[in-house]
């Protein structure tokens, strides 16, 4: 059997997810024996624009160029896997989506009257192309990418965790920070896969893996944290930090904006 061809590409993002693939180190070498890597942005400058079996794409679509490249990669790949929150929901970059226009944002950062490169409001890949699989995380977990690689090489569709961090807390018997200590943990609405790393260290979940697709009860998270005495704006920001483009959180933000009549601090 011919070795599957793999391409790893980056759009607008920090490159952290590609780095996590490099972090596989020794294992990476073993894995590489089984595949042919035709493009790997972070690891080498060689880019071959040929057909690939599996394309891993990191980063959000934030410029016209990103979009062009994404469409090109989609055309050339049998399977397209979005890696990292940026490629899924826009991640941190999308924190202010739909709050201000892109022009306002650029002006705020670069000053008025500057010439900007062609920017788009940051979104994940699935807004534009068909995505076969999404690996959440900011960055993705090495254990997860390892499992996905192994699954694919074995010939199977990888199983992605579609349940909240709380499950992993319980399976590890970690104390519940939200219930026991009243900490503003986002675990109940955030996709597992990190093996509840932060709660295990006594740190409340900030939601770096992003909310669970179509299952997020953001309104209840707000309600729960309000009851614990946290400030509404603080909670909203916390929710939007990694999840601003996710349906449940978008809806919540919209509701809150309407409630306050659009008046919002920056």
């Amino acid at each position: 059997m011919a070795k599957p061809k793999i391409g790893i590409y980056g759009l607008t993002g920090c490159g952290g997810d590609q780095l996590m693939i490099l972090n596989l180190e020794n294992e990476l070498l073993d894995l590489l024996r089984n595949v042919e890597i035709v493009a790997f942005q972070e690891a080498s400058s060689v880019q071959q624009d040929e057909e690939v079996d599996i394309a891993f794409v990191e980063g959000s679509v934030s410029t016209e160029l990103d979009l062009e490249r994404l469409k090109d990669v989609r055309k050339r790949s049998r399977m397209l896997i979005a890696i990292g929150d940026c490629a899924i929901g826009g991640c941190v970059q999308a924190m202010r989506n739909q709050e201000m226009t892109m022009k306002e944002k650029m002006e705020e950062v670069y000053g008025k009257g500057e010439e900007y490169f062609k920017v788009l409001e940051p979104y994940g890949l699935s807004k534009y192309v068909n995505v076969d699989l999404e690996l959440q995380g900011c960055p993705i977990e090495t254990t997860e990418i390892r499992q996905v690689f192994l699954s694919l090489l074995h010939g199977d569709t990888p199983e992605i965790k579609d349940y909240p961090v709380c499950v992993e807390c319980k399976l590890n018997e970690y104390q519940c920070l939200l219930v026991d200590k009243g900490m503003p943990c986002l675990g109940p609405i955030i996709a597992a896969g990190c093996n509840a790393r932060c709660p295990g260290l006594g740190i409340d979940c900030v939601g770096c893996r992003g909310p669970i697709m179509n299952e997020t009860n953001a309104a209840e998270e707000l309600h729960t944290l309000l009851e614990k005495g946290y400030d509404e704006r603080y909670i909203e920001n916390r929710l939007r930090f990694f999840g601003a483009n996710f349906e449940g959180i978008l809806k919540l933000s919209k509701m809150l904006r309407e409630k306050t009549g659009g008046a919002r601090g920056k």
């Binding site: 349940y163 909240p164 709380c166 319980k170 519940c176």
Partner: peptide, 13 residues
């Protein structure tokens, strides 16, 4: 159900 997160804690404990 509107209040519930679907987090599974209730079953796991």
């Amino acid at each position: 159900a509107d209040k519930c997160f679907g987090c599974g804690s209730c079953n796991l404990v």
